[in-house]
C-alpha cells in the first residue's frame, strides 16, 4: 500500500530524448558551427592567459586594485595571487579565468542587446520575464543537462551552460537601467532631433550604465560559480581540481583549490565593483 502505483508511469524522458535527437539531426550543423566558434574563441583566450607571464598578471591585478580602490587593496590582491601560485594552481586558475572571461563576453554580447530590446518592447519584456525568473530559480546543475545533450562533454558545453546561467542579471539590469531613465530626459533628447540610435547611445545607455555595470558584476560572479560546477562535465580549471580532490578524498588538495576559488571570487568582485563606481555620475 505504501508504494506509488506502478501503472502511473509516464515516460517523459524518452520524448525529451526524441526531441534532442531531432534537434541534433536537423540543426546538427548549427551546433557544430557554434562548437567550432566557441572552441576557437576559448582557445585564443586560454592561450593568451597561459602566455601571459605570471608577474604580469600579478602586477596587473595589483595595478587595477590600486586604481579602482586603493593601493593597499592592490598589494593585498597581488599577495593573494602569489598565494594561489604557491599552491601550484597557477595554470588551473588561468584556465578558469579564460572560461569566465569567455562566458562573460558572450553573456554581455547576448544580454545587453536583449535587455535593450526588453526595455523598448513591452511584449518582449512580458515574454522574457517568466523565462528569466525560471532561469534564476533553477539550480545551476540543471543547466548541465541540455548542454551535455547538445554538445557532449568538454569545454564547450561548460561554456554554453555558464552563458545561459550567467546571462539573466545583465539582461534584467540593462532593461531596468534603461526603463529608469527619466521620461523628460528622453523627451529632451527627442526634442533636439536625435535619431533613435543617438538617443540610445548618447542618453539612455550612459544613464543606465551604472545599473548595467552592477548587472555585469553579478553576471561575472555567477559565471565564476558556474565554471566551477561545470568542471563536472569536463571543464578544466580550479573546479576540476576540487572534483579530483573530492573523488580521492584528498583534503589538502581540495582545501588549496577551494581557497583559490574564493580568492579569485573576491578579487573579481572587488575589481568589478570598483569599476561600477568609476561609472557613477553625481545623481
Amino acid at each position: 500500500m505504501n508504494n506509488f502505483p506502478a501503472f502511473l508511469h509516464l515516460k517523459l524522458g524518452i520524448y525529451v530524448k526524441y526531441f534532442v535527437d531531432w534537434l541534433i539531426k536537423n540543426f546538427g550543423e548549427f551546433f557544430e558551427a557554434l562548437t567550432e566558434a566557441l572552441l576557437w574563441f576559448l582557445g585564443q583566450v586560454e592561450s593568451f592567459f597561459l602566455w601571459l607571464p605570471w608577474w604580469v598578471v600579478v602586477g596587473g591585478v595589483c595595478f587595477l586594485g590600486w586604481r579602482l580602490r586603493k593601493l593597499s587593496t592592490g598589494i593585498t590582491f597581488a599577495l593573494l595571487m602569489l598565494l594561489i601560485g604557491s599552491f601550484k594552481l597557477w595554470d588551473a586558475t588561468m584556465a578558469t579565468m579564460a572560461l569566465v572571461l569567455t562566458s562573460v563576453v558572450f553573456s554581455l554580447v547576448i544580454g545587453i542587446p536583449l535587455g535593450i530590446l526588453m526595455a523598448y518592447s513591452e511584449r518582449t519584456s512580458t515574454l522574457m520575464k517568466p523565462v528569466l525568473d525560471a532561469m534564476q530559480t533553477m539550480p545551476s546543475f540543471v543547466y548541465l543537462i541540455p548542454a551535455v545533450m547538445l554538445f557532449n562533454l568538454g569545454k564547450v558545453p561548460a561554456t554554453f551552460a555558464t552563458i545561459i546561467y550567467a546571462v539573466p542579471p545583465v539582461m534584467r539590469l540593462t532593461e531596468l537601467g534603461i526603463r529608469r531613465v527619466p521620461r523628460e530626459m528622453v523627451e529632451a533628447a527627442h526634442s533636439f532631433g536625435s535619431t533613435a540610435w543617438q538617443t540610445l547611445v548618447k542618453v539612455q545607455l550612459p544613464q543606465a550604465l551604472p545599473t548595467i555595470m552592477t548587472g555585469i558584476n553579478q553576471t561575472t560572479m555567477m559565471a565564476l560559480s558556474m565554471v566551477v560546477i561545470a568542471s563536472m562535465i569536463g571543464a578544466k580549471g580550479l573546479g576540476m581540481e576540487i572534483m579530483i580532490a573530492i573523488s580521492r578524498l584528498d583534503i589538502a588538495r581540495g582545501f588549496e583549490a577551494g581557497i583559490s576559488v574564493v580568492i579569485l571570487a573576491i578579487i573579481i568582485d572587488r575589481l568589478s565593483q570598483g569599476l561600477v563606481h568609476k561609472f557613477k555620475f553625481p545623481e
Binding site: 523628460e184 530626459m185 523627451e187 529632451a188 526634442s191 533636439f192 544613464q207 553625481p282
Partner: peptide, 12 residues
C-alpha cells in the same frame, strides 16, 4: 527648441 519644467538635463 524646448525648455522643460523639470529641466530635463542630462545628468551624466
Amino acid at each position: 527648441a524646448m525648455v522643460f519644467q523639470h529641466f530635463g538635463l542630462f545628468t551624466h
